[in-house]
Simulated assay, not measured.
Amino acid sequence: MDGPPEVPGIGRPPETRRESYVKLVWIAMWLAFLGSPVADLLRGDHGPVGTVLGWLGLVAFAGCYVGLVLRQTGRPTEPVVVRGCLTVLAVFAIALPLTLGDEWLVLFVYVSVACGAVLPLKWTRTAILTTTAALIATGLLLGADPQYWLLIPTLLGGFSMIGVRELVRTTRELREARAQVAQLAANEERLRLARDLHDLLGHSLSLITLKSELAGRMLPDHPGKAAGQVADIEKVSRQALVDVREAVTGYRRPRLAAELGGAQAALAAAGIAAEVPADVPDLPGTAEATLAWTLREAVTNVVRHSGARHCTVTVTRRETLGGPVVELSVEDDGAGPSGAPPGNGLNGLAERLAAVGGTLETGTAPARGFRLVARVPAASVGSAA
């Protein structure tokens, strides 16, 4: 038996705590449908021995179902174990209704859901239809009223589980693709820096090497000319150092568009619905870097401290009395301001913004939560701190 499909060349990412909680809640909701067998046992109509065996069978069935679905949807189980667990579930689903009554026919719904959750897609439809046929046959043997056969829940539970599993698989593939894109972007930036450094330093280092060799040959007989060559070497090396610093500064400077993408990914990973603009206005390098740092700090605060469910980020260009400005707004629906003095993070942002002639405002959002607004001149007047 094949395991669940995976993206070629990419391992399945570890399950997050949030996903585990959601899965547990989902399984608990499904187990609530065992109310009919539980009520049947509580009535005590089967005698002491029958009641005890019924409880043991119900607990074994539920434990096998939970263990199989929980394990298989988190990390694929060995095919032999999957087949064995499904066989156990099918045997219990047939034996318990035949011995205890038609109120136990609901177990077939769980068998159908388990087939949809753990079997390869090419087998799931056949397994779900076979489970439904077994339900009908068991109901006929019991002489049960057809309304207790649970045909629709059995079919709907199994086929809906196929859709849920495909949705989970697609979500994982998108997450993996996003991680790959980010990695490729980082690799491309490293290659760009390597090319820039090669172009900057290749000529300079070659010139320094040649002039050093020339100065060495001139030194015994023409020390004055050798000193001139050494002075040229100093000029070339200083210019090379300036070029490298400029290249590294541009490499390390955060870009607002990249930070918007990172903000959306961070908020989504924290389970916070995000509204993030696709485009940003043109900005001078220092102003753009300052807004990028501001956005990073603001989103970090939202993820760590706000407890928000929704966050809106806007970047707009506005005309003011002092001239055109670009305004960054980060607004969430979380706990809101704590009333305590601003921390080092916000103070640092205010200093960065002030260095480029910008301002920072924080406070309660119009509806509920926390709002941060940063403004920088559309024409930078300083350099980032």
Rank of each mutant, 00 (worst) to 15 (best):
161 M>G: 08
98 L>W: 04
63 G>P: 00
59 V>Y: 05
321 L>C: 04
337 P>V: 14
252 R>N: 11
311 C>T: 12
316 T>K: 03
238 R>M: 12
84 G>Q: 07
306 S>N: 02
208 I>M: 14
110 Y>V: 01
296 R>G: 11
144 A>S: 15
377 P>G: 13
364 T>A: 13
225 K>I: 10
309 R>M: 10
203 H>Y: 07
208 I>L: 12
246 E>R: 15
97 P>T: 10
347 N>W: 00
297 E>D: 13
50 G>A: 11
89 L>C: 06
132 T>G: 09
290 T>R: 06
137 A>Y: 05
58 L>R: 10
227 A>Y: 13
339 G>R: 12
304 R>P: 00
295 L>D: 08
14 P>E: 12
256 L>P: 04
360 L>T: 01
6 E>A: 13
288 E>V: 05
26 W>P: 01
205 L>N: 03
149 W>L: 13
70 L>T: 02
42 L>R: 05
115 C>Q: 03
277 P>F: 14
2 D>W: 05
364 T>D: 09
268 A>G: 11
57 G>W: 04
282 D>M: 05
43 R>G: 02
258 A>C: 04
258 A>G: 10
38 V>F: 00
144 A>C: 07
37 P>A: 02
21 Y>Q: 12
170 T>G: 09
366 P>L: 05
331 E>M: 11
319 E>K: 04
312 T>Y: 02
191 L>Y: 04
8 P>F: 05
167 L>C: 08
73 T>G: 03
101 G>H: 13
109 V>R: 00
339 G>M: 08
268 A>I: 01
220 P>T: 03
217 R>T: 15
339 G>I: 09
90 A>F: 00
285 G>M: 09
371 R>K: 09
119 L>D: 03
145 D>F: 08
175 R>W: 09
322 G>T: 12
321 L>E: 14
310 H>S: 11
220 P>Y: 07
242 V>H: 11
205 L>M: 06
121 L>D: 10
283 L>R: 09
201 L>M: 10
183 Q>G: 09
35 G>F: 03
70 L>V: 01
27 I>P: 02
102 D>V: 02
154 T>E: 02
328 L>P: 03
34 L>I: 03
115 C>G: 04
224 G>V: 15
246 E>D: 15
166 E>T: 10
223 P>L: 10
49 V>P: 06
158 G>P: 06
48 P>W: 08
23 K>H: 10
208 I>C: 13
188 E>F: 07
362 T>Y: 00
15 E>N: 10
46 H>Y: 05
176 E>V: 15
253 R>H: 07
250 G>D: 14
84 G>T: 05
202 G>T: 04
82 V>G: 02
10 I>Y: 10
22 V>L: 14
366 P>V: 10
258 A>W: 08
97 P>N: 08
44 G>S: 07
371 R>P: 06
238 R>V: 14
271 G>Q: 15
163 G>P: 03
311 C>N: 07
197 L>W: 02
134 A>R: 13
79 P>Y: 04
113 V>M: 00
154 T>F: 02
184 L>P: 07
19 E>W: 04
159 F>W: 12
74 G>W: 01
105 L>Q: 06
72 Q>C: 04
66 V>I: 11
235 K>G: 14
71 R>H: 06
297 E>N: 13
352 R>F: 08
120 P>H: 07
27 I>T: 01
88 V>M: 13
229 Q>L: 15
376 V>E: 09
349 L>E: 04
110 Y>W: 03
306 S>F: 01
235 K>I: 12
